[in-house]
Design a protein around this nucleic acid. Sequence first.
DNA 1: AAGGCGGGGAC
DNA 2: GTCCCAGCCTT
Length: 340
Amino acid sequence: MLEWYDAHARVLPWRVPPGSGEAADPYRIWMSEIMLQQTTVVTVKAYFERFTARWPTVADLAAAEDAEVMGEWAGLGYYARARNLLKCARVVVADHGGSFPNTEAELLTLPGIGPYTAAAVASIAFDQPAPVMDGNIERVMARLFAVEAPLPGSKPVLKAHATRLTPAERPGDHAQALMDLGATICTPRSPACGICPLMAACFARAQGIAADLPRKAPKKVKPTRLGYVYVARRADGALLLETRPEKGLLGGMLAFPTSEWSDAPEEAPPFEADWRDTGVEVRHTFTHFHLRLTLRQTEAPMDLAPERGEFVPEALFKPSSLPTLMRKAYDLSETDHDPA
DNA sequence: AAGGCGGGGAC
DNA sequence: GTCCCAGCCTT
């Protein structure tokens, strides 16, 4: 596995090339692992570059304003990660002298760091033989040992296989090798068994069932929820926006006011006005439901003091600081701005 | 143990 | 449209 990795390791912004002798920066490894949770490498790259350029050290990040970090994270999703990222940076500075702890057990106590991330940081940044388990490695183990029991019940068996294979030497490169393999060869559909370095050892390949593994429990159907979203613009271009509550969907993110989201939502405009029915529907799909928001718009008087949210001057408003649902509403709203 | 929690790309 | 992704937290 390590020979294959030395020859084929992907070049990634947070990765130290194998054999370079360079030490990995725990801050950068941690940052990349948080961003990579349930998120593809392609998506993460640009965010990782922006974050590390703006905040080069954990102390820089710990000193940042909450709104700056949430705005920079906008579009990446799973916003609890951004809130925990900042919490974690502040704990590392306040309680660990600005250096990440170097054991799996200590890392596991930090906000936003669970079993996967603790093992990944311990092995990649600190060269400790902590067995790393993620979706890629689960799939590789299920195929390598032809585990036919469905996920998530089979997780303990897959973890046992991964633990047994974790070497004392270069455990971080071993873990990254398995993840690279899962991402490029042992893919969910149409695995490229013909060029796989583990071809000779793989039981699923021998049985011709590689593409059928891992089996998974059937998923639930996503319901559709409805609602209204209210875009109010003043003559000077300022937009009415609010910061959503810390907990829950899009927590801590900038947003246009909306009604409740349900089967039969009631209108809930942020202030009394002649709200135009634009005839536009904003469609978006979250992890567990589809959403359709009817777009309402109005011109707000300059002297209005809203009870919800506040008017953000045009010069201070960055569309890129909105989560994608709200960015869609902004792009679909009728204005003189260029949707491109 | 189960459910909440984003978004984009591949098919 | 569905499935998947370097998962974590709450209940």
